[in-house]
Simulated assay, not measured.
Amino acid sequence: MNVTNIGILDSLSDLKDLDWDGDIKKKQTGLNLLIVCLISTWPHNGCEIQECRSESFTLHNLCLGLPQIKEQEEPNSTSWPDYYLDQINAMMTLVSTSGEDEVANRTKVVDSLKTALRTQPMKFVMRFLDLDGLSVLLNFLEKMDYETMESPIHTSVIGCIKALMNNSLGRANVLAHPTSINIISQSMITENIKTKIAVLEIMGGVCLVPGGHKKVLDAMCHYQQFASERTRFQVRF
């Protein structure tokens, strides 16, 4: 086997920066097969990449055997939606909020999820939706007690849905959910003005998408019955 040195990499992650079709294959010099062999000293002093000529292996076969680099933390960290969904599910098992400190702690958790849905990479939102995170938020809105309904926790949960609506994938899931807009509309029954405004902002956004105007009208009819209003749009501010 003939071996010709190509270069030194700082780490295995630098493999992705190589131009496999260009820099490597140009070195074939008329041979039938070309593979890249790793003489791995990583994490000690990097990895030496060598050009190898062989009739037994292919570049594709060898690359599949490269060790995978861990890119993410464990799902129980705040970098994953799993943590926040576990916390919100735990909130629903408690009978009622007790004291300002407890309300503040719960609000902080939900606010952190709201921020993550706005700022984390798309894979965070995708995993959130894969874990049925939208249903977790909607279930919370349906099952919360009166104290929670009038607290900042309620406003923050609506804020999480609003953050989802600002994402194309999240918005599609909210609109595709059969009862999401109806459940969101029920939050207008609170006396908390901030929560009502957040709900109306979501409704206004839904009106701008195809078919959304009818969804909002249907939701207002639903709210009329839910709040025992005499006429539609009789929401008190």
Rank of each mutant, 00 (worst) to 15 (best):
S228I: 07
G170M: 03
L33Q: 11
T179L: 11
N2V: 13
N167G: 03
G133A: 02
L34R: 09
L64A: 14
G205T: 02
T115M: 05
H154I: 00
V209C: 09
T58E: 03
A90P: 03
K194Y: 11
L31S: 15
N32P: 04
S98D: 11
A90G: 14
I202Y: 00
L33A: 09
D101Q: 14
V125C: 06
E73K: 13
K108E: 14
N61D: 12
L208P: 02
L141A: 00
T231K: 15
M122E: 15
S56F: 12
K70Q: 08
H60D: 15
L131K: 14
K162Q: 10
G46V: 06
I197R: 05
L175N: 08
G22P: 07
K25E: 09
S180L: 01
K16C: 03
E142C: 04
E102I: 08
D19G: 08
T93Q: 08
K70W: 00
T97W: 00
M149P: 01
H213D: 12
S151P: 01
L208S: 11
E71F: 03
V36I: 11
I35S: 15
N166F: 12
M203S: 07
C52I: 14
N2K: 12
R236Y: 09
Q186R: 09
N45E: 11
G46M: 06
W80M: 06
I88V: 08
P81R: 01
D10P: 10
L169A: 11
E147G: 06
